[in-house]
């Protein structure tokens, strides 16, 4: 619907990115990026946090002290740093309602939560940007159909679609990724389309066409790299919102099954224990979610500012 108006849709990001330069980064650009990043305190911290999370996710089995699913009912709900009879601290972050090690679960949780976040964004991003580029490139009827599909998707409250699909397919990591990914394609499609329309008439595209390059090749080689930058910015914000969405769905009982540790799942499970005083169940996964989302947002902000020449240097 909004297509009827000549404006850019800008979910999740400031207006700046949409007018930003979308040239392919050259060597000097990378250098500038490195300089700009190192000069800023918060983004570098955010990057560091994300790196730590990524390490946890990738090397989870190697670094986690215990099997995250190993239960011990007699050791349930131990507070953090409780020492056993031998004075050894077996569970640095305590145990949950089934006596499982929170630290190990949080480490494994990083794996699933981040994987869900990134995979969903990759799916949504690829689907959305391809459709957006196709729509923008060909225009006409193709454009109409794709944008009408986008309208249907937008008008369909995302949460209802998600709940429906998860109820139908059953909760599971794969289904969750699929539905959270598909739910986002419109954002990418609209931006990719807008950018493509702007690029379509540019000289280098004309040149490629005149030497007889195929449409697919032009879209992949000439247009895609030039619309990539703003999409990356949106992606960084979207990873954050997918991680939050996963938590909310866990609360509604539609997240991944409780046998698979995720941050959102652990947090949602902890709510029955809060009044009982077992704060550690909530605090650690909560901190993990907040830090990750915060870092992704900070980094996303930085990328956006960096890409926008008019904000540069402020």
């Amino acid at each position: 619907m909004t297509e009827g108006v000549q404006k850019q849709p800008i979910p999740n990001v400031g207006v700046a990115v949409l007018h930003g330069s979308a040239a392919q980064p050259s060597m000097s650009e990378w250098k500038r990026a490195r300089k700009s990043l190192l000069g800023a305190r918060w983004p570098i911290l955010a990057l560091l946090i994300l790196l730590i999370m990524a390490v946890m996710a990738v090397f989870g089995p190697q670094i986690s002290p215990r099997d995250p699913n190993r239960q011990s009912l007699i050791e349930r709900l131990k507070p953090p740093m409780t020492a056993n009879a031998e004075g050894v601290v077996a569970y640095p972050l305590g145990t949950d309602a089934l006596g499982r090690d929170i630290l190990s679960r949080a480490i494994y949780g990083a794996r699933v939560s981040l994987a869900v976040g990134f995979a969903a964004v990759v799916i949504g991003g690829l689907l959305g940007s391809s459709l957006g580029i196709i729509a923008g490139y060909f225009g006409g009827r193709v454009d109409d159909i794709i944008m009408r599909l986008a309208d249907i998707q937008l008008a369909f409250p995302f949460i209802l679609l998600t709940i429906m699909v998860l109820v139908v397919l059953g909760p599971g990591v794969g289904n969750l990724v699929l539905v959270l990914g598909i739910g986002q394609w419109v954002t990418y499609a609209r931006i990719a389309r807008g950018q493509t329309i702007a690029q379509r008439e540019k000289e280098y595209v004309e040149a490629a066409r005149s030497i007889g390059a195929k449409d697919l090749r032009i879209m992949l080689r000439s247009i895609f790299p030039n619309v990539l930058a703003p999409l990356i910015v949106i992606a960084s914000f979207n990873v954050a919102s997918v991680i939050l969405a996963e938590a909310s769905l866990s609360f509604l009982g539609l997240g991944v099954p409780p046998t698979v540790p995720t941050w959102g799942g652990i947090l949602a499970e902890s709510r029955d224990n809060l009044l009982g005083g077992s704060w550690w169940l909530a605090v650690f996964p909560g901190i993990a979610i907040m830090l990750t989302v915060l870092s992704l947002n900070i980094l996303g902000d930085w990328v956006r500012d960096f890409l926008d020449p008019r904000l540069r240097g402020r």
Binding site: A240, S248, F251, L267, L274, L275, A282, G286, I289, N297
Partner: peptide
């Protein structure tokens, strides 16, 4: 604002209640 964007809403709700 950053915190407001990184807290799951069910969690905020339960915390407000408690």
């Amino acid at each position: 604002a950053m915190f407001g964007q990184s807290i799951p809403s069910f969690w905020l709700g339960i915390m407000l209640i408690l």
